[in-house]
């Protein structure tokens, strides 16, 4: 478990104190994929780098599996960092080393394994990330997605318990992003690895994370399970991220809805309910009429969900009956108008 207790970080730039992270409490469970989302400058990169102490906190305590990592000696810190893998937006592979050389590097630096042991482990790691045929190539000969796979293999070399992902898919095209995210999810399951990732894309969070924290101006403004945060965003920053990810322009949507009669509701279905023919049944049994204004049926990680914005038209009593039916079916209803 990674715990932050009142951790804060201020930078000293040109004599002025700039707060990068305000006093923050946070706990990340073992084995989960925890996402941190925020715009650039929100403090997510600082928070991530505090975990492996690439940044030192200005105050507070960071406790990982019961050990206070803010109090480590320099030798202790180096040993601790071997249990925390990290991958980067720009991969940060050594251009002077082959793919195999890059993956071998953390093990060579640790000095605990023999040459043959390292070679065997490199082969195994490269096979796991699907790059067995590229061992002797140099990073410059690889595509972005392949480079990130090398980065992942390298990060896993010393058998870490935690993997930090610093905007790991931001430099990749959408298809490659999907493949890298899938690989991360697989590794998380296979190795029971805790993954902390930062991103500015809600889509990345939606596809792989279990829980998410939303950051704005150096603090966490909202956190919870991805489904809760994604489907019912409370904070303005979160709401903007969700709208962005669904490509919705709030103002034009409001204009569009102004011409629609009746009550406007947002229905959120989760799990099996997503695929049940509820709307039709409600319309038949209550006699109301409905029109779908906006909607999305998709998955959050592995769970299906649907979110529909509908207008209900009919007698007031029928509308109330319809609402009761939605509630009874465990559909979350927000009345927008």
């Amino acid at each position: 478990m990674i715990e932050f207790h009142q951790v804060h970080k201020t930078y000293n730039a040109a004599g002025r104190e700039i707060p990068a992270l305000k006093a923050t409490d946070l706990s990340i469970q073992n084995g989960e994929i925890f996402g941190l989302i925020g715009h650039s400058g929100a403090g997510k990169s600082t928070l991530l780098r505090l975990i492996n102490r690439l940044e030192n906190p200005s105050g507070g305590r960071i406790v990982v599996d019961g050990e206070d990592v803010t109090a480590l000696s320099s030798g202790g810190l180096r040993a601790y960092r071997r249990h925390v893998g990290m991958i980067f937006q720009h991969f940060n592979l050594l251009s002077s080393k082959t793919v195999a050389g890059n993956v071998a590097m953390p093990m060579e630096l640790a000095g605990a394994l023999s040459r043959t042991q390292i070679a065997a482990r490199v082969a195994q790691l490269l096979a796991r990330v699907g790059l067995a045929d590229h061992a002797m190539k140099y990073p410059a000969q690889l595509s972005g997605g392949q480079k990130q796979r090398v980065g992942i293999a390298r990060a896993l070399a010393t058998d870490p318990k935690i993997l930090l992902c610093d905007e790991a898919t931001s430099a990749l095209d959408p298809q490659t992003t999907g493949q890298v995210l899938q690989l991360l999810a697989e590794i998380n399951r296979e190795l029971k690895l805790t993954i902390v990732l930062i991103t500015h894309e809600m889509d990345v969070i939606r596809r792989v994370c279990d829980r998410v924290a939303v950051m704005d101006a150096g603090e966490i403004v909202e956190q919870g399970t991805v489904a809760d945060v994604f489907l019912h965003p409370q904070h303005a920053t979160t709401q903007r991220f969700v709208l962005e990810s669904e490509h919705i322009d709030e103002a034009s949507q409001r204009d569009d809805f102004a011409h629609v009669e009746g009550r406007i509701l947002r229905l959120t279905f989760r799990g099996e309910a997503t695929y049940s023919p509820l709307l039709g049944r409600v319309a038949r049994e209550t006699g109301i009429d409905y029109s779908i204004l906006a909607g999305r049926i998709d998955r959050i990680k592995d769970d299906p969900y649907g979110q529909l914005t509908i207008a209900l038209m009919g007698l007031e009593t029928d509308v109330e009956a319809a609402l009761a039916m939605f509630h009874a079916a465990d559909v979350h209803v927000e009345v927008l108008r």
Partner: peptide, 19 residues
């Protein structure tokens, strides 16, 4: 970033320089 990645691997200062 390469220095940062090497640090993150748990490298000492001399390892960062020479490796």
């Amino acid at each position: 970033g390469i220095i940062e990645a090497t640090q993150a691997m748990g490298a000492s200062l001399s390892q960062i320089i020479f490796r």
